[in-house]
């Protein structure tokens, strides 16, 4: 279908493209699902509409009623997607945003009228989550959807992303995705384990560098409730961390096959390539991976054009997952 009554109907049903030309193993195919094709530009459109519609069903939000405010911590894409949905539904959105996200992420929030509440960049997403929790507790009339703990987050992927993947790539053997709130991995992972038993679920963890250095104590650590509520430790088969340089290198390599994707997509592709290289000789596999967003929001980082070592140093200071 290419004719829509509302932008919200355009969320999901994203295309999958063959990226096997970048596979290091001739017996391993790699397919990339292009979530940048969502109307607000990322996989988080699926989460935003799911969170808001769940709150409306529960009566926590009433469409069209004046004076309703939402608060949400986000390093960018969830905030941007929620800002678009809230604009259409008439809700006021406050996004708690670490100060060190790319300038384009900040600007996109303003496009759809969100209010930005800055949290310390040195505390990364942990700091944004903490500040949002505090502000939500102090302002009980605000609606706190809390994507890190809300079952509507993985549910969006269980009911849509997972079935789309299995319909388009029924021969899938491995699903490789990034670990943020863990919503994509938990929702798609659970769907695939149920409907294509034996599918391996691999998590790619962003490098944590400077932000981790800001922790005062190990007890300041954080595991998203979405991960523990879905028994993530048992659902995942493997978790690997990728380095900033690999992330940039693979973001660039993806342009060789025409894909202009965000830096987290490069990181996840680096993980998919690792996965492909570990498939034993004589075995074949089909990996499906996610490109969370397109490259537009990262042009200011010079990721494609500047000296790679300079880009890597710059990338260590911004949040791109």
């Amino acid at each position: 279908m290419t004719r829509y009554e509302s932008v919200l109907e355009m969320i999901g049903n994203t295309p999958v493209v063959n990226a096997s030309a970048l596979s290091p193993n001739p017996n391993v195919a790699i397919w990339v699902k292009l979530e940048g094709r969502n109307p607000a530009g990322s996989v988080k459109d699926r989460v935003a509409i799911s969170l808001v519609e769940a709150a409306e069903r529960e009566g926590r939000l009433i469409p069209g009623q004046a004076g309703q405010t939402l608060i949400e911590p986000s390093s960018g894409n969830t905030g941007i997607a929620l800002a678009m949905v809230c604009r259409l539904r008439g809700y006021h959105l406050k996004v708690v945003l670490p100060s060190n996200v790319s300038i384009e992420r900040r600007q996109l929030l303003l496009v759809w009228g969100a209010e930005i509440v800055d949290s310390p960049g040195s505390e990364g997403s942990n700091g944004a989550v903490r500040m949002a929790q505090t502000l939500a507790a102090e302002n009980p009339s605000w609606v706190f959807l809390y994507q890190y703990a809300n079952p509507a987050n993985p549910l969006a992927h269980y009911t849509h992303t997972g079935p789309e993947i299995l319909a388009d790539v029924p021969e899938i053997t491995h699903f490789v995705a990034g670990l943020g709130t863990s919503g994509t991995l938990m929702g798609v992972g659970k769907y695939l384990k149920e409907h294509k038993p034996g599918t391996q679920i691999w998590a790619i963890e962003p490098p944590s560098g400077e932000m981790v250095d800001g922790l005062r104590s190990l007890e300041d650590g954080y595991i998203p409730p979405v991960f523990t509520d879905n028994d993530g430790a048992n659902l995942l088969d493997r978790k690997v961390v990728v380095r900033p340089k690999e992330s940039i290198e693979w973001t660039r390599r993806m342009s060789e096959i025409g894909l202009f994707v965000g830096i987290s997509s490069g990181a996840i592709m680096a993980g998919a390539v690792k996965c492909a290289s570990l498939i034993p000789e004589g075995e074949s596999a089909t990996i499906v991976t996610i490109a969370c967003d397109d490259g537009w929001k990262y042009l200011s980082t010079g990721a494609w054009t500047d000296d790679i070592d300079e880009v890597v140093e710059r990338a260590k200071r911004i949040i791109y997952f």
């Binding site: 997403s125 944590s208 560098g209 400077e210 954080y222 997952f321």
Partner: peptide
């Protein structure tokens, strides 16, 4: 062998 604290997704690079 690398030891790292668990942090929320969206950690900086």
């Amino acid at each position: 062998v690398t030891l790292l604290p668990a942090v929320a997704g969206g950690a900086s690079a």
